[in-house]
Design a protein around this nucleic acid. Structure first.
Length: 303
DNA sequence: TCATGTCAAGGCGTC
DNA sequence: GACGCCTTGACATGA
């Protein structure tokens, strides 16, 4: 089992998502930003290796305006060596990598323009994984999209769009159950239609389900991942922030709930992304618990 | 230097 | 129809 956290490391004094305003776009600024972002990403990954955090979600902002028509700088060729070196490190350390394009990526939108921009964003993020020469176990994680008043039609539109995606995107795309609109059951229907694996989010499942117990839900999601092609189930882990709106993520790991979830997990192998506000701080606590349970190696040095 | 408003992009729910 | 929320950091401007 690998443990990870998304995008930002609060212990390191750099950012991997430096950007600028569209109005101040220039090729030079792209070049400067990407160089800095990739250097920071390397530092974050080294921190992660030192702390036995072997699952990481790379920020969507590595390349400012990466899928926007304004960006015509040939960053793919200019930074090819840097991406390849990162990929070599990732493979050597057996890290698992994902991207999570944000809410603007909506494959089932009725608007052809929105779908086109969404596909462009997936192509951009997938191409970074390709440049790192990572296999198809490195994933692009999205939600099913909007409801538009008709769940059936919305799911059918996702399926129709899926068939039009470039193969490079299809190979990496996974769909996550969300907390308000599309449940695990809806995602299973997408899986049955097109074979897309389901990235399982335990907290979203708690918010929106059809009575499936957690143990069963985990196994249903895991069965959608083809071991050789996709790797083990990726999942997002979080829990409710006490006293806050339903669906609000906790600000730091609740250890009792985490231990209870590990019991639900049983012997199922997963890679777990902690979607918790304090990032690597909670992830380090999770690793300490797993180490205590003998589920991760003791070799990592803690600093 | 610091505080604050704003940033490419969508959609839902509330009022 | 307007606005807040998701979830969030960092830019950019003005004091």
């Amino acid at each position: 089992m690998r443990i990870g956290y998304p995008c930002v490391n609060e212990s390191i004094d750099c950012t991997s998502s430096s950007t600028f305003r569209l109005a101040s776009y220039s090729d030079e600024r792209v070049q400067t930003a990407v160089a800095g972002n990739l250097a920071c990403l390397r530092r974050i990954l080294e921190y992660n290796v030192a702390h036995e955090l072997r699952f990481f979600r790379i920020s969507s902002g590595i390349v400012p305006f990466g899928s926007h028509p304004v960006n015509v700088f040939p960053w793919q060729t200019h930074f090819a060596a840097e991406f390849r070196a990162l990929g070599d490190y990732i493979k050597a350390e057996q890290l698992r990598i994902s991207f999570h394009p944000d809410q603007f990526v909506v494959l089932n939108s009725p608007s052809a323009d929105i779908v086109q921009r969404s596909v462009a964003e997936l192509v951009y993020q997938g191409s970074m994984l390709d440049l790192m020469e990572l296999d198809s176990t490195a994933k692009l994680q999205i939600h099913a999209g909007g409801l538009y008043g008709d769940r059936e039609v919305a799911l059918e539109r996702f399926i129709a769009t899926y068939h039009t995606l470039p193969e490079a995107v299809k190979a990496r795309l996974v769909v996550e159950n969300d907390d308000r609109l599309f449940s695990l059951r809806d995602c299973l229907r997408l899986h049955e239609a097109v074979g897309v694996p389901i990235l399982f989010d335990n907290f979203h499942h708690e918010c929106l389900n059809h009575g499936e117990p957690m143990t069963e839900a985990l196994r249903l999601a895991a069965a959608t991942w083809h071991p050789e092609r996709d790797g083990v189930l990726m999942m997002d882990y979080s829990s409710q922030s006490v006293g806050e709106r339903k669906g609000k993520h906790t600000s730091s790991l609740d250890e009792a709930q985490f231990r209870a979830f590990l019991a639900d997990l049983g012997d199922l192998d997963v890679d777990m992304m902690l979607e918790i506000k304090d990032k690597e701080a909670s992830a380090n606590r999770a690793v300490a618990i797993l180490r205590e349970l003998g589920l991760v190696p003791v070799t990592a040095s803690i600093s």
